[in-house]
């Protein structure tokens, strides 16, 4: 069973990995590429924080014994790739308005936030 759980974890983690952009800067200025990267991350984090404020998400978080404050701290410590993946998932689920999708995402949010520090 342990191996099975590990395999599933690997499967899920591998689907959350995306590429990181290359940074480039000239003479003290923040380059446009870097600025866009920062803006995307800020937007992604804002989207996730917004999602964490939903009632159903809060309930899920409480169920696994995670305070909203701690959840927010964990979001802040996600890598750029994780923020991007998570916010994209949330966008997709909430845009489609399909309950199954939202449920999956809720569970994913909880899972990622819950396990991120132990992998």
């Amino acid at each position: 069973m342990k191996i099975f759980v590990r395999l599933m974890l690997c499967f899920m983690i591998s689907t959350t990995m995306v590429e990181l952009p290359v940074m480039q800067a000239h003479a003290g200025m923040i380059s446009t590429t870097e600025a866009l990267h920062e803006m995307n991350r800020a937007q992604g984090e804002a989207d996730i924080q917004e999602f964490l404020k939903r009632d159903d998400v809060q309930k899920q978080l409480m169920k696994v014994g995670l305070s909203q404050e701690e959840a927010q701290k964990r979001v802040a410590s996600l890598s750029d790739a994780e923020v991007k993946k998570l916010s994209t998932d949330i966008q997709k689920a909430t845009a489609g308005g399909d309950i199954g999708g939202i449920l999956v995402t809720v569970l994913l949010v909880v899972l990622i936030i819950y396990l991120i520090k132990r992998i």
Partner: peptide, 16 residues
Amino acid sequence: MQRLLFLIFLAQLLVS
């Protein structure tokens, strides 16, 4: 916890 993981795994399969 393991049940939760299993559910998520199934859900991902279903979605795909």
